[in-house]
Design a protein around this nucleic acid. Structure first.
Lengths: 183, 183
DNA sequence: ACGGGCATGTAAGGGGTTACATGATTCT
DNA sequence: AGAATCATGTAACCCCTTACATGCCCGT
């Protein structure tokens, strides 16, 4: 269960609420790990039950009470143990786009081309967002937390996402040409 | 549930058993869709219950009975309906490798480098396997089934997998250099 | 004799998504 | 007036993984 590890990881930076954690994930890990609040809240309760995090309830005026979670020593140990384990094996992913394409030889050529062009638009927009917003967010977080070593890793990972998108965009462009010519 | 669609798709080529379907998936869709037999068998039963496929039990000497499934007209319609729907939105994936790396700034540099070099080996091996085996399998399937249009799609998708691997390998190489220099 | 291929499944549990439920404040 | 933000959760369901269960044949 890697959502637990994600939460422990973010809480190792600073105490936070479930809502805060969701925002952190949306801004930084969204392209390689994400979760809905409806999954985050029960997972936090479970981590609390396991003694890995502790909650402090903060009453607020005009807003619901906050539950600010922080890492316990046991939680820190669990995070360190996870980081000490080797990197996971590359798991064969699931890609609904490629799957549908695999069986799409009978789809009308112009429909197929329109779909692929639409994907190109989406991916280009995503790449642009990734290039525009993420470096600024990393820089801001490094400045705020004074963790330059983490900044190196974060930028590396940003590059991985960026290059994955670029590779897919190049493939889409080539695929459109090939289908136009050969299908 | 896209496993259903995968099964319907393969059964549109020829009637097959669950065991056969698993082999087909292992040889062709493994990098973007896969399933264990323990998931395939119940799903086939469910598709049969929904009237989308029909089973013919074939007794065998010295082996367990086969259940050869084939598409019903309703199953063909369901497959066509799925193919008529637009391509799925790019879902933000989950990547345990990048996730762990994201929190790995505190891991010893030489440990990190060893882990990344190990990943490089794994990925290079996977790329080599992809380049060696898949084209032959596609050619054989096209020759056996006389479906050149499908062959075009299959080769396109093979290229997507190949280029995704290549992009990741290039990134790993660059990441090793960066970590060595800056962490 | 042992491992791999053929061939089918069941059971339990983990992880994740979607829908539902509440309610005040602030921005447009 | 309506949408977004803050803030928390529950319940149902779906999909998938892991472990278990069976048993014969063939090649080494």
């Amino acid at each position: 269960m890697s959502l637990s590890h994600t939460l422990l990881g973010f809480l190792s930076y600073a105490p936070m609420t479930g809502y805060d954690l969701k925002k952190q994930m949306d801004r930084s890990t969204q392209f390689f790990w994400h979760a809905a609040l409806s999954q985050i809240y029960p997972t936090l309760q479970q981590l609390e039950g396991d003694g890995l995090i502790a909650a402090a309830t903060v009453p607020q005026a005009g807003k619901p009470d906050k539950k600010v979670y922080s890492l316990t020593p046991a939680g820190r140990a669990a995070l360190d143990a996870w980081l000490a384990e080797p990197l996971p094996d590359p798991a064969p992913g699931k890609d609904g786009l490629l799957l549908k394409l695999f069986f799409s030889a009978s789809v009308e050529k112009k429909t197929l081309l329109a779909r692929l062009r639409h994907q190109l638009d989406l991916r280009r927009a995503r790449l642009a967002a990734c290039e525009r917003e993420t470096p600024a967010h990393i820089a801001a977080t490094v400045a705020a937390t004074g963790r330059p070593r983490d900044g190196v890793m974060w930028d590396l990972i940003r590059q991985a996402g960026e290059e994955r998108e670029r590779a897919f965009i190049r493939w889409l462009e080539a695929a459109i040409v090939t289908i136009d010519a050969r299908l």
